[in-house]
Simulated scan of single mutants.
Amino acid sequence: MLLENKTAVIYGGGGTIGGAMASAFAAEGARVFLVGRTPAKLDTVANSIRDAGGQAETAVVDALDASAVNDHIDAVVEKAGSVDISINVISHEGAFQPLADIPTADFVAGISKALTTQLITTKAAARHMVKQESGVLLFFGGSDHANAIPGLGNVQVGMDAVESMRRQWAVELAPHGIRTVTLLTGGVVDAFPDTPEFAAARQGIMDASPLKRAATTADVGNVAAFVASDKGRSIASTQVNISFGACYG
């Protein structure tokens, strides 16, 4: 198994993307700790993992509360002995509109929440990884400067900001043996709501790929598990493109 004896913490672990990553990590032998704010969603993912023979635990934690996040990660390390993988895939209020139509407060609020939770959760994990002199910090979404399209509002701006933060973490943490990697996607089609308005978005994502395909949640989980494993140890301080060629990053 790729992740045997590894400990993974997934913030937003009850969501579609977070759940897919958690399931993939657990299937490869990791002990996963799912963090979120909705117990029912966390329990659904955890029970599915346990039914498949994996190890999963849940915790209700507000990722905007630094004290709560730090208390939780300390408890994980005390119980499991280490934190080897950490990823934050918490969804935030994105405004898919032309920039001119978004109220300033709404534009700033979405990006602020994304950056704040990423900073808090990454700092918490990094504190232990530095002591261990090892660990993998995964990020999701990525920055694709070559393919800017209208109507993304503050969503792509927020992802660009997170990717900038990831690059800064990389140069500061690499000397401690910590890898930082972003999964660059052009959109994960089966994570979208099944509505007519999103049907067009799904088709647009597939049309942007030379292969006319798009990543699924299973693809995201499988790639994340490999990147986080020792077999992916040479992948560091970079983005991994899982967009079927739609993104150029």
Rank of each mutant, 00 (worst) to 15 (best):
A24L: 09
F139E: 05
L115C: 10
A125P: 02
G245F: 06
M21R: 05
F244Q: 11
G12I: 03
A161D: 00
D43L: 11
I87Y: 03
K6S: 13
V189I: 11
P210I: 10
R127L: 10
S23A: 12
V89R: 08
Q168L: 11
F96S: 14
G29Y: 00
T122H: 11
G151W: 02
D219F: 02
G81R: 13
Q239V: 05
V89T: 12
L211A: 15
R233W: 09
F25Q: 09
D84W: 03
A56S: 05
A75H: 05
T182I: 09
G141K: 03
A125K: 08
G204H: 12
D144G: 03
V35P: 06
A80T: 13
Y248M: 15
A75W: 01
G81L: 11
A215L: 08
F25G: 05
P150L: 14
D71W: 00
I235Q: 06
A174I: 00
V76R: 11
G186Q: 12
G245T: 09
G54H: 14
C247N: 15
G177S: 03
H176V: 03
C247W: 10
Q55M: 12
K231E: 14
G18D: 08
F96L: 15
I90Y: 09
L119M: 15
N154D: 04
F107P: 00
A126Y: 10
A27D: 06
R213N: 05
D62E: 12
T182Y: 08
S134W: 15
N154Q: 09
S48Y: 07
A66R: 03
A26F: 01
V61N: 02
P39G: 01
E133G: 03
S243D: 06
A214K: 05
L138N: 04
Q203N: 06
G19L: 01
T217M: 01
A63R: 08
A59M: 14
N70K: 07
A214R: 04
